[in-house]
Structures are given as C-alpha cells and as structure tokens.
Design a protein around this nucleic acid. Structure first.
Length: 256
DNA sequence: AAGTAGCTCAACCGCCCGGCC
DNA sequence: CGGCCGGGCGGTTGAGCTACT
C-alpha cells in the first residue's frame, strides 16, 4: 500500500539511523533562526548544517515554535509580517548579494562534481567530522543496507552512526550527488555559501557581503569567515560578542 | 468524566527538475 | 523534442496527544 516516494520519506525523516529526536538545543535554535534568515525556507539546505536533524523536523520546529517565538520577540503583525526595522535585521540581502551567493553555490557544486569525477583525488570530505552523508540517495541507502547486512547486531549501532557521521563512507559519486543535486552541503559546500575573505575579526569592508568570495582550492586554504565561525563555534552560548547579537543589516548597510 | 482547544509531528500533496527512452 | 518516471523539496494536513475548563 506504500509507494516508493512514501517509503523514501519514511526513511529520510524517521527510520534513518542517527536522527536526533527530542527538543532542540538553544544553539540549534539560534542556528536555525539565522540560517532561515540567510537562506529562507530552504529547509533541506538548513538541515545540512544540522546533520542529526531532518529538514522535516526543522520545518516543523520552525512552524510550531520559532515563528511564534520570533513574533513575540519582534512584535509581529497579525498577518505574520515582521515590523520593518526588525525584518531588515533578518533579511539583509540585496538582490546582488543573493545572486553572488547563488553563483558561488553553483560554482562549488561544479567543483565538487569535478572532484568526484577525478579518480586520482582522495575523497575530500573523508576526514571531516562534519560531513553530512545521510542516505538521501540510492547509493547511500545501498551502502547502509550493505553495512547492515555485513555487521553483526552488536556493531550495527556504531556502524549506523558512522554512516551518518560521514566518516568516509560516502563515495565520490555520493558527494557529487549531494553537492550538485540534493543541495546537501558538505564542508566544501559550507565554504560556498559563507566563504568570504576576512582579514580582521571585525566586520570589515572586505568581509561580509562584499563579494570578495574565494573558493576553496588546494593551493590556497581559505580562512574561516566570521559567519562560519559563529555557525560552528561551541562557545557562542558562553555569551560575549557573537554574530547572533550583531544586527546583520548594520554590517550590510555599512558596505552599501 | 466529558468536551474543547492547542500542540506536535509523521505523512501526504503538488510542483519542479533531471534522466531515460 | 516530447513524454514518462522517479527523486527532491516546501507547504499543508490530520491523527494523536496533552492541557485546560
């Protein structure tokens, strides 16, 4: 009685090993809020930054919790639109900025594809702990099933979490598929969206939204951007100046 | 205990896109 | 080139649960 589509959905949103259930942490919450402000309702893209959460979970969490929360905080209108001044903080992109990020994403997807097609190169994300390789593709599902069949029940749990953790189980084809087709953001993909040149810890003219986008290459490792630092810095909950407290429109306006 | 409102979240729906024939 | 099919995605629904009256 189930179609393939329904089965896929059941797998990706519920059965897939490594899915984190339960309440969202404060850090996850803030990450979602800012990613939503940056990416809009691109839940799959947002979910790629939270490997243990599904796009469906994040979407539900946004619709049921965060929307209300933000309305309260921001003094929202009844129709759901936020007040002008506040919305500017959350939607700082001009058309040009948005086009630049999209172009960069496309470029990165092409690069990932190129790497995947190159048999000489080792898998770029193999050593990364943040690689997201959830079984969104047929290949990944096949690999998971193979692992399931091979491993004894004793080791299944560990194997499953390894798969999700992306410790090199994904083939190059898999990463290419993710990068170019399903918008899964690998560490390289993270570079694509937020990789901006930063020379100082402050939001300088050459950093945020200026379009000085550098692509990750082997020859020139790129310094991590302010935004990316914030996205993965565990210390943001410790207070102090962090990006979440910086009105994004201020930084953007400074540059325009 | 019964009725109601609100909430949660898995599942469904429709659209778009790419691959294949 | 066009039709078909399957995968991916975002929006929406509704069953089940809880809290409240």
């Amino acid at each position: 009685m189930r179609c393939s589509k329904s089965c896929r959905l059941r797998w990706t949103n519920y059965l897939r090993p490594g899915i984190k259930r339960g309440n969202f942490t404060d850090q996850e919450e803030r990450l979602i809020i800012h990613l939503q402000a940056l990416l809009g309702n691109r839940w799959a893209a947002i979910a790629s930054y939270l490997p243990e959460r599904t796009d469906n979970d994040i979407k539900n969490f946004w619709n049921t919790h965060l929307k209300k929360k933000l309305r309260k905080i921001q003094g929202c209108q009844d129709d759901g639109t936020v007040n002008a001044g506040l919305s500017a903080n959350y939607y700082p992109f001009t058309k040009g900025m948005w086009e630049r990020t999209v172009q960069t994403d496309i470029h990165m997807a092409k690069q990932a594809l190129g790497e995947a097609l190159s048999l000489q190169k080792p898998h770029a994300g193999a050593s990364s702990a943040t690689t997201t390789t959830y079984a969104s593709s047929t290949e990944n599902i096949s690999r998971l099933l193979e692992g399931w069949m091979k491993n004894s029940p004793k080791t299944r749990a560990a194997s499953a979490s390894d798969m999700v953790g992306g410790s090199g189980s994904a083939s190059t084809e898999g990463s290419a598929t993710m990068a170019s087709k399903s918008a899964q953001v690998s560490p390289e993909g993270l570079d694509s969206l937020f990789k901006m040149e930063t020379s100082t810890p402050e939001v300088s003219e050459s950093s945020l939204f200026q379009g000085q986008i550098k692509l990750a290459t082997e020859e020139a490792p790129i310094p991590i951007s302010l935004l990316e630092t914030w996205l993965f810095d565990d210390t943001i909950e410790q207070g102090g100046a962090c990006l979440v407290d910086i009105p994004l429109c201020d930084a953007a306006a400074e540059l325009l």
